[in-house]
Amino acid sequence: MSSFLNTDGRHRTLEGWPLVFTTLTILAVLVGGTVEFLPLVLMETNRPTISTVTPYTPLELTGRDLYIREGCVSCHSQQIRPFRDEIERYGEYSKPGESIYDRPFLWGSKRTGPDLSRVGGKYPDLWHVLHLEDPRSTSPNSLMPPYNWLLSQDVNLDNLTAKMNGLRTLGTPYTDSDIEGAVQDAKAQASNIARTISASGGPQGLETKEIVAVIAYLQRMGTDLTKSQN
């Protein structure tokens, strides 16, 4: 050690060799990431799959990208920890297999609002419309900003094919017919949701609006784990 640290030791020599110094630095920083990351990619046991977890429908995918656009992840986590209080409050803790189609992952790092990983099915569609339009109408004292533009802006389905093709390249198992019928499928799911909303006394004509896509995604969240296998 001392021959290394001496004022005229080997490290002193190294200080005169920027190229070698830089190479050693790169090696030093590469070790940790590599040792931790490779097993995550290579070992199946590190990413167990769950048979009931399926890719997002075209409308849910669209809603998820709107969730990303609005930065919901800044205040809402999607990761229930294996603690009794979180299981009590939010439901079963999150499993690795549940997020295999999440690109990017949206686990979040801060809970200004509650965790949303199992919000799917917890509230009726209309509740989400009212809540997103004016959070304090359903949750007095809420700090959340209103997202009323989701009710007035038309949802953009034009890029669905490109998005799903991209995801398929990366490994999401969308079939040709899934992608060809994506827009059709999204519109069908949207009008179903819009119908439920108006039938329960909510506003009419939301089927072309962004909010139905967001609701489709929210109602999907965390439900795969308990749905029956077809």
Binding site: P124, W127, L130, T138, S200, G201
Partner: peptide
């Protein structure tokens, strides 16, 4: 969900 006067909402 049920309205302030229980008149029904959602």
């Amino acid at each position: 969900c049920h309205g302030p006067a229980a008149e029904g909402l959602i």
